[in-house]
Design a protein around this nucleic acid. Structure first.
Lengths: 210, 210
DNA sequence: CCAAAAGTGTTGCCGGTACACCCATGG
DNA sequence: CCATGGGTGTACCGGCAACACTTTTGG
């Protein structure tokens, strides 16, 4: 006896102002040819958090990003594990380097237009999106979706992509600067920017304990 | 291979205006003689939620109460399961009927004065308490800690026991009635009450989806 | 010259908090 | 008569939402 356990990851990023999730196209059974969330069984002696971190690094090449346990599902129908511990992570698309492995090809998919997913992974994505929306409002999670420095409008587009509704520029500034989530760096952007603009940074790049 | 999974329950109630948690005194190994949270392995073919529901009913005799997955821990050191799916539940102490089983004796313990716990169960209780505090603020979870009808002061004492700080009576009324969490029943209490007092009830006795 | 992005204040509303006294009853 | 619990209104404050125009620069 003993019920096998696995981890599954919902890895979000922002691509072209769209909230996107990392999916793999499975080459091997089960569900070959179908899209699914990355994940897999625990290695012998590995902790669950450890497995999630390892999988995240394997898929995106990044560590030191926001990664949090989401929920533990039951019977997702993959036949491999009846207990699936799901995590969600936020990565900066510019830093992530997707690596095709032998058994699947990874790709970013906008959450607004997901392909059909195997193993009831839709439920998992929906739940993660919900959680992300909530956390975005009252924490600094967005730090993990952007480079260290950024303009306020860039940050605002991230918020809009996740919350789905446009936001007034002045109110946004007040909220996010006034509450101390982000602060001015003193630097101004020149390269690539349309014109010189103040750069901001997160006051903390650690997940808030709340 | 295959990592065995188990569930653990943090069952809260209010006893003498104190937030309390159900502990069992283990008679069997491992950790015989120590206090711990109730829980156990999944039965063959059982879902994780199912195991939690079964354990809750077994310990307290109640069903139809607030019961929610809390977090999945790793290596709690019980040697039985390396993946432990924790749940938390809220029950009305007046309805619960604790049943001593052969292997342990259950009892309510005020969370302010817990005995030493086995298996790092302190962490689990602390986490559950945190979650309870958060949920109390913006949901109706308290419905599961009281009988159907109650006076406002009784409800207020529940809030104070959980949040740990006293609250102004008038403000409390405005919040909780004004926001539609509870409503007047029209009934007034006579039995046992100090004098006739309006009875209230929760607008919904379902967990809010938020 | 035009499109795209940066920057900037005021006002109203609502929700939350602080605060004190009277009444009815049971013991 | 006193201890216990029920019941009631107002005033301030801070956060949040609504709202429009000017500037700079790259193409």
């Amino acid at each position: 006896m003993g019920v096998s356990a696995a981890v599954v990851l919902v890895i979000f990023t922002i691509q072209q102002d769209q909230l996107s999730v990392l999916l793999i196209e499975r080459a091997a059974q089960p569900a070959a040819g179908q899209w699914a969330l990355p994940g897999g069984a625990l290695l012998p002696g590995e902790t669950v958090d450890g497995a999630a971190t390892r999988k995240l690094a394997g898929e995106t090449g990044v560590a030191d990003v926001f990664l949090e346990q989401l929920y533990t599902f039951d019977r997702l129908g993959d036949g491999l594990a009846s207990v699936v511990v799901c995590y969600f992570a936020l990565v900066d698309a510019a830093r992530a380097r997707l690596r095709a492995e032998s058994e699947w090809r990874p790709a970013w998919h906008p959450v607004r237009r997901l392909p059909p997913l195997a193993f009831e992974n839709d439920k998992v994505v929906a739940y993660a999106q919900e959680r992300l929306r909530n956390k975005l409002v009252y924490t600094n999670v967005a730090y993990s979706l952007l480079p260290r420095q950024f303009t306020l409008t860039r940050l605002q587009r991230v918020y809009e992509a996740i919350l789905g509704e446009p936001e007034d520029k002045r109110n946004f500034r007040k909220r996010v600067v006034g509450s101390g989530i982000v602060r001015e760096t003193g630097q101004t952007a020149k390269e690539g920017a349309h014109r010189p603009a103040m750069l901001y940074e997160f006051a903390s790049r650690e997940p808030m304990t709340l």
